[in-house]
Amino acid sequence: MTIKLNVVKRTETGKKLDKLRANGKLPAVVYGAKEESTPLSLDRREFEKAYEAAGESSIIVLTGLDEDKEVLVHDMAFNAVKGGVQHVDFYAVEKGKEVTVPVELTFVGEAPAIKLGGSLTKALHEIEVTAKPANLPHEIIVDINVLNTFEDHIRVKDLNIPSGVKVENDPEDMVAVVTEAKEEPVEEVTVDMAAIEVEQKGKKEDEEEAA
């Protein structure tokens, strides 16, 4: 599925960007290894829909310029108070040239070992991959149904990687494991009853003398 975003070249800068945002637009910029930086603006809601589908590892095609551009979302700036996206950086990729990007790991299923009293530990939430833009995956699925015991684990080398994609992480890197919950040892407290009895007796004698 091709994800497209219509953009226009932007002339507004500085404080004028606040008015742009108030009208539902989002300031952006596109640049690349062999391409100069070009200021852009686009519809905020359309970007949010596209980003939800593409993330930072799938190609988005920018339309509305002199020519369509294949890009990746390279960076985003957020409003410190409201939390919304304030600005987007797009990186223009060269057709046919490999790029390296982080790809999110999506965990699915239920680990049987959890029912044995364990807890699931996710050691990685994303991995680095290198591929041509057309082969970049949006996500990598991690099936935790295979974690039947506390000895089972999933490493990077166990992941199902699409054809044409090279993983940059160490193959032995841990992805997920179910660890056994260990009970904290209860410290026994020894009470010296003889000492308590002597103390109470002494207190009683002091009270009688005072009387």
Rank of each mutant, 00 (worst) to 15 (best):
Glu126Asp: 06
Lys115Phe: 00
Glu36Gly: 14
Val30Cys: 09
Val175Thr: 00
Ile144Asp: 01
Ala77Ile: 09
Ala92Ile: 03
Lys204Leu: 10
Val101Leu: 08
Val71Thr: 04
Lys25Cys: 03
Leu124His: 03
Glu128Asn: 11
Gly32Trp: 07
Val167Trp: 06
Lys157Arg: 07
Asn6Val: 15
Thr13Lys: 15
Ala28Arg: 09
Asp192Tyr: 10
Val88Thr: 06
Val142Gln: 03
Glu52Ser: 08
Ile161Arg: 03
Lys204Asn: 05
Ala211Trp: 09
Thr38Pro: 05
Glu188Leu: 11
Met193Glu: 15
Pro39Leu: 03
Thr11Cys: 03
Glu104Ile: 15
Leu120Val: 09
Asp18Gln: 13
Lys122Pro: 04
Leu40Pro: 12
Thr38Leu: 13
Lys201Thr: 11
Glu104Ser: 08
Gln86Glu: 13
Asp152Glu: 02
Glu168Trp: 04
Leu20Asp: 14
Leu42Ser: 14
Val189Ser: 01
Thr130Ser: 15
Lys115Tyr: 00
Glu187Leu: 13
Leu26Ser: 12
Glu67Trp: 00
Thr190Arg: 07
Glu207Thr: 06
Asn79Cys: 08
Val99Tyr: 08
Leu40Asn: 09
Pro102Tyr: 04
Ala211Ile: 12
Ala50Ser: 14
Phe90His: 05
Val93Gln: 06
Val30Ser: 03
Val198Phe: 10
Lys69Gln: 10
Pro27Ser: 06
Leu105Lys: 06
Val30Glu: 11
Val85His: 02
Val99Thr: 08
Pro133Lys: 04
Leu116Phe: 01
His87Leu: 11
Val177Leu: 05
Glu151Ile: 00
Pro162Gly: 10
Ala53Phe: 08
Thr179Lys: 14
Asp170Trp: 03
Thr190Lys: 14
Lys9Thr: 11
Leu105Phe: 04
Tyr91Leu: 08
Lys201Trp: 07
Ala77Thr: 15
Pro171Leu: 02
Val103Asp: 02
Leu20Asn: 09
Gly14Asn: 10
Pro162His: 04
Lys166Gln: 07
His138Thr: 13
Thr100Gly: 02
Glu205Thr: 12
Glu205Asp: 10
Val93Phe: 05
Val108Gly: 00
Asp170Arg: 04
Ile114Gln: 04
His87Ser: 14
His138Lys: 15
Lys95Asn: 10
Ala195Phe: 09
Val7Arg: 06
Pro171His: 10
Val88Ala: 05
Ile196Trp: 08
Asp66Ala: 15
Thr11Phe: 11
His138Ser: 08
Glu35Phe: 05
Ser41Pro: 00
Glu180Asn: 04
Ile141Pro: 01
Glu126Trp: 00
Val146Lys: 01
Val61Leu: 01
Glu205Val: 15
Asn145Lys: 02
Phe107Leu: 00
Gly96Asn: 12
Ile141Glu: 11
